[in-house]
Computed example of a mutant assay.
Amino acid sequence: MRLLLNLIWLVLCGLWMAIGYVIAALICFILIITIPFGIASLRIAAYALWPFGRMVVDDPSAGAPSLVGNVFWVVFAGWWLALGHLVTGVALCITIIGIPLGLANFKLIPVSLLPLGKQIVEVP
């Protein structure tokens, strides 16, 4: 079932979301000082590409720099991304077929809001 949902997700919205996150990562890499945000954006892109069967957990080795980075991220990009995922998720949940895709969008909200200090792991 996860494979089917991931394939539908990939075709309908996952590929476009991943491309957007990769473009944002490339911009962050060009600006050099924002490289940690670029790495986080690539992590979100990989998660947005194939979200079913994976989940976000806190990284136990993350410290104060992740907290400071997350504050900057929320102010400049995180709340826009979270709002976009919320609106898209609500729109997808209007139809019965779109409910699993809407729920996957809701799963992306925490990592798009606070990406630093997070890991994406496979669900057992």
Rank of each mutant, 00 (worst) to 15 (best):
G63I: 13
I30D: 08
V56R: 03
W50P: 05
F52C: 00
L67A: 14
V71R: 10
V71G: 14
L67P: 07
R54W: 10
V11H: 04
Y21L: 11
V57Y: 05
N70P: 08
I27H: 03
G14L: 01
I8W: 10
S41N: 11
L26N: 08
W16G: 11
A40C: 15
V57F: 04
I32L: 15
A25H: 00
P36S: 12
R54A: 07
V11A: 15
P65I: 14
A18M: 13
G63Q: 06
Y21W: 14
G69V: 01
I44W: 02
R54D: 03
L12Q: 08
C28G: 05
A48I: 08
T34V: 04
D58P: 07
A18V: 09
I19G: 03
G38T: 08
W9Q: 05
L7W: 13
I30W: 12
L31K: 10
A18S: 14
M55Y: 10
V56C: 09
S66Q: 01
L42H: 13
A62M: 06
M17I: 10
F72E: 01
G20T: 12
G20E: 12
V68S: 04
G69D: 09
M55F: 10
P36K: 09
P65G: 04
I44F: 07
R43F: 07
G20D: 05
I27E: 09
V11L: 15
Y47W: 09
Y47H: 07
R43G: 08
F29Q: 08
L15E: 02
P51I: 12
G63A: 08
L42Q: 08
L10C: 00
A40H: 05
P60V: 09
W50K: 09
I19Q: 07
V56S: 13
S61N: 11
I39K: 01
L67T: 13
S61I: 02
W50A: 08
I19T: 07
T34I: 04
I8K: 00
S61D: 12
L26P: 00
S61E: 11
S61T: 07
G38F: 01
F37M: 05
L15Y: 07
V11Y: 03
A18P: 00
I32Q: 13
V56M: 02
V68T: 15
A25G: 11
A46V: 11
F52G: 00
L26F: 11
I30C: 14
V57L: 07
